[in-house]
Computed example of a mutant assay.
Amino acid sequence: MPRLTSGSLIHDSVNVTFGEKEERMMITGMHTVADIFCVGCGSIVGWKYEAAHERIQKYKEGKFILERFKVLGPDGSNYTVSQEARVGGSDADDA
């Protein structure tokens, strides 16, 4: 089943641990991914693209998707990223 996200493709992530690598069919094709988990609560907060099987998707390799609705700010409210702080933009083709 394809994964849907309202997250952003980013270059790095902190305070996370990684699950096992697995092959996953996404809307944009087959990818090798690893789920990423919050070190505080253990919840899945997104995934890391380890490998893309299609050449046109190679730009995603090594980058992360953090699902916005799963990430909270320091005060417990919904976390939002200002336009200037965005690193990789939206991964709209996985939405």
Rank of each mutant, 00 (worst) to 15 (best):
R55V: 01
K63M: 04
K58G: 02
L72K: 10
V81R: 09
G73P: 11
T17D: 09
Y59N: 14
R86Y: 06
I36R: 02
N78D: 08
S13H: 04
G88T: 12
Y79T: 01
L72H: 04
A52D: 04
G42R: 05
Q57N: 07
D91N: 11
L72D: 01
I27R: 12
I27G: 07
T80F: 11
S8G: 12
T32R: 15
M1Y: 10
T5N: 05
M25R: 07
Q57H: 00
C41Q: 05
V71R: 13
E23K: 10
G19I: 11
V39A: 06
V45Q: 02
S82F: 05
M26P: 01
E61I: 13
G73Y: 11
V33N: 07
V14Q: 11
S13A: 09
D94V: 14
F37D: 00
C41M: 05
K70D: 02
R55N: 00
T32P: 01
K48T: 07
P2K: 10
G29N: 08
S77Y: 03
L9K: 02
G62V: 11
V71A: 07
G62R: 12
E50R: 09
L72T: 04
T32Q: 15
L4D: 07
S13L: 05
G29D: 05
R24V: 12
E61G: 14
V33S: 08
N15Y: 15
R86F: 08
F18W: 12
M1A: 14
S77N: 13
V87Q: 10
D91M: 08
M30P: 00
F37L: 02
Q57P: 00
L72Q: 03
F37R: 02
I56C: 09
V14G: 06
S90R: 04
G46W: 04
E23G: 05
G29P: 02
W47D: 03
E67P: 09
H31T: 06
